[in-house]
Design a binder for these strands. Structure first.
Lengths: 102, 102
DNA sequence: AAAGTTACTTACTTTTCGAAAGTACATGAA
DNA sequence: TTCATGTACTTTCGAAAAGTAAGTAACTTT
């Protein structure tokens, strides 16, 4: 990310998407705001540890927003920011390719 | 890839792209056929070991074709198949997003 | 009071990666 | 002939990332 120089911005994005579970995680978040448990339900093979870790990463990069609702049992919700929602064409492109070639 | 079931084809693609260096590797291969040493030059931070490993993986999945030209010093060339070339929209989508949001 | 839910965290194992050196084959220079 | 250089890998080994399982804190339901 720091030295290779074809296109640093692309490299940032490729490194982000180039992490295990990121593609799936963003796909499910495109559905709308989800709670931790809902993400678990959608991606049962992804461990709690990695869900937490990836969400934190996406939050730090401004792609996901974490909201806490202090209801009776506290509710934590994750949703894509604009930056995140704009990844939809990427996800769609992957889906289209997969439809045709996988 | 076997159990999670949102969309197995998408998951296959996401897992492929979701590997370190894959995004960059495919990007540089979109330029046209390249030799091992050229890939090294384009992605200096990627180790020989991983270049070999990723290319082998892409070859097995029918995304890259490896050709050996028995010239004076043997020449080995890697190029995208149709399946691989059709990843261009995906790469472009990533690039567009990166341009705007990174 | 015991058991369950939610959103995590911690500890430990396994897998993957990175860095460096080594290999096989060939050409070219000293 | 010996040495250095180049290409395309392969091997080795320590470090980082991911997988697995169990634990925690706050609250709710039974």
């Amino acid at each position: 990310m720091q030295k290779t120089s074809i296109c640093p911005k692309y490299e940032f994005a490729a490194e982000l998407l180039g992490k295990k579970w990121m593609g799936l995680l963003i796909l499910v978040l495109l559905q709308g705001p989800l709670r931790f448990k809902d993400i678990k339900k959608e991606i049962p093979d992804m461990s709690d540890r990695l869900i937490t870790e990836r969400l934190k990463e996406l939050e730090e990069k401004g792609i996901v927003e974490r909201s806490v609702f202090p209801e009776k049992p506290v509710r934590v919700q994750y949703q894509l920011t604009n930056k995140g929602k704009n990844l939809e064409p990427v996800i769609n492109a992957i889906q289209n390719w997969a439809e045709v070639w996988v």
